[in-house]
Design a protein around this nucleic acid. Structure first.
Length: 488
RNA sequence: CGGAGCGUGGCGCAGCCCGGUAGCGUACCUGAAUGGGGUUCAGGUGGUCGCGAGUUCAAAUCUCGCCGCUCCGACCA
């Protein structure tokens, strides 16, 4: 294995997979499109998950778990939903294998009476249950989330961004009124924005999806949309107002206070392991990952430099009080006492994106100093061991903010406004990035632009200004201000 | 599903055109020195050459078939 990654500027997607495997985040599974999330990558996911789980619970939701298998017939109950997912479902048709001439074969006698599908998303099972659980307005709102794996049999896959099986959370809520459902949808959108920006340091735009891009079965899909290091857009999370579509499909009604029967209003929302792809592609550089401190598996790595056993002992004793303080205050650290050379460790931990490296050798011990190196800027400085805890805490916060600022500046530098379709085309072709412009809201327009430029409507800006704008393509008065970009 | 490429120790590759019993780098193991930006030297372990047929005295190499994976498109969180 070569030691360096393919340079990011030279080949972004080559760089991406290189970083993931070399940093030890994930590996390819034996079945096409599957991925093994290795301990270092999973630890990153756990930190993300725990941060979000807390926000979900703090806003009144509870966790539950619904089954992996769904009767095939369930999917068919909501017309748009089937159309969206039918093409990518794994289907279980048999329950048994048996010995054949050339090894194991599917036992034809074990064919299932009703085939089951592996969930591509759980709306259908969940709404089949909600029908049983919801009778009265007193049962509402029902606010349930689940952490689960789902399977979508995609043509083309990419580590974290689009794998056949992926991990996510999916929230499914039921409400008495349209307004309440809309409020819920937007509440979750704000939580996703907070997760992305404050924890992952990934700046996101929020807004509505176009008809073409919305979730199959939703009335409205809101999204958080981010710009990756190659200036392409990544949908990082979605929150759907499902209206009464699923309630009608599954017959979920409730009795109101004045004894009327009404269909409930629904929402669903999810973010997935794809977010880790966003973190990698937003912050990474030619040396590897750069992880935001709030979710980094290790916030600081200690690289001791020693020759003799005596050095080892001295360093160990020298560091002990500081490390205890780290431990007691929840700073995640790792001591690398492996026999590799210091230079090797520096590169290794930079590849893994650890925000701060602490170097300490006999020289420092004598002077009661340690050296701190920042992964985000590369800056290296000597500090007294006294008060190192507060210095580290301060630096972690600074790095978290700096990563966000860098990404935000990058996005702003690569977001262009235009009213001219000629300019639009050349921007997409030559420069990439986001294009902010007017759109007449017609699907036809969107389709044409997609065919001609490969750019799609990523996001209809909620705070868009349309008063004087014209559609960049048709020249008609703009209905929305939107972001166009090439997307993942 | 269309296009391209690749399957040879764990990983990355050479060898194939022109058949003759498998090699390089790295990783790994042992030892010694080294250690503040991918450390050096010495010794060593490890391969049904993707699978199956065929041609041949002989196949990683030639022929046919199959399978798998990666990348680029259409589709998607």
């Amino acid at each position: 294995m070569s030691k360096k990654v393919i340079p990011r500027s030279q080949n972004f997607s080559g760089w991406y997979t290189d970083v993931i495997t070399k940093a030890g985040l994930a590996d390819y599974g034996p079945v096409k499109g599957t991925m093994v999330i290795k301990p270092y990558g999973f630890s990153l996911w756990e930190n993300l998950r725990d941060s979000l789980d807390k926000m979900i619970k703090d806003s009144g939701h509870v966790n539950a778990y619904f089954p992996l298998f769904i009767p095939k017939s369930f999917l068919a109950q909501e017309a748009e939903h089937v159309e969206g997912f039918a093409k990518e479902c794994a289907v279980v048709t048999h329950s048994r294998l048996k010995a054949g001439k050339d090894g194991l074969i599917v036992d034809p006698e074990s064919k299932l009476d009703e085939e089951v599908i592996v969930r591509p998303t759980s709306e259908t099972v969940i709404w089949s249950m909600y029908k049983k659980w919801i009778q009265s307005y007193r049962d509402l709102p029902l606010l349930i989330n689940q952490w689960a794996n789902v399977v979508r049999w995609e043509m083309r896959t990419r580590l974290f961004l689009r794998t056949t099986e992926f991990l996510w959370q999916e929230g499914h809520t039921a409400h008495a009124t349209e307004e309440e459902a809309e409020k819920e949808t937007l509440l979750i959108l704000s939580i996703y924005k907070k997760l992305a920006e404050e924890f992952l340091a990934v700046p996101v735009l929020t807004g509505l999806k176009s008809e073409a891009e919305k979730f199959a079965g939703a009335e409205r899909t809101y999204c958080i949309e981010a710009m990756m290091g190659d200036k392409r857009a990544l949908q990082a999370g979605t929150s759907h107002n499902l209206g009464q579509n699923f309630a009608k499909a599954f017959g979920v009604t409730f009795q109101t206070e004045d004894n009327k029967e009404k269909y409930v209003h629904a929402t669903s929302w999810g973010v997935s392991t794809r977010l880790l792809g966003a973190v990698i592609m937003t912050h990474g550089d030619d040396k590897g990952l750069r992880l935001p401190p709030k979710i980094a598996p290790y916030q600081i790595v200690i690289v001791p430099i020693f020759r003799t056993d005596e050095d080892r002992q001295n360093i160990h004793h020298f560091l002990e009080p500081a490390l205890n303080k780290f431990k007691n205050n929840g700073v995640r650290y790792y001591e690398d006492w492996s026999p590799n050379s210091p230079g090797f460790k520096f590169n290794e931990w930079e590849m893994k994106g650890v925000p701060i490296r602490l170097e300490v050798g006999p020289r420092d011990v004598n002077e009661s100093n340690v050296i701190l190196a920042r992964r985000d800027t590369g800056e290296k400085k000597s500090y007294s061991i006294n008060g190192i805890f507060s210095k580290v805490s301060e630096l972690l916060e600074e790095i978290q903010n700096n990563l966000f600022q860098q990404a935000l500046t990058f996005r702003e530098n690569h977001t262009h406004s235009t009213d001219s379709y000629e300019e639009f085309k050349s921007l997409i072709k030559e420069k990439g990035g986001f294009i902010k412009c007017g759109w007449d809201g017609e699907s036809e327009t969107e389709l044409r632009i997609k065919e001609e430029t490969k750019a799609t409507v990523r996001c209809i800006l909620s705070d868009g200004e349309i008063s004087k704008k014209m559609c960049v393509y048709s020249g008609k008065p703009a209905k929305y201000e939107v972001i166009f970009a090439k997307a993942y």
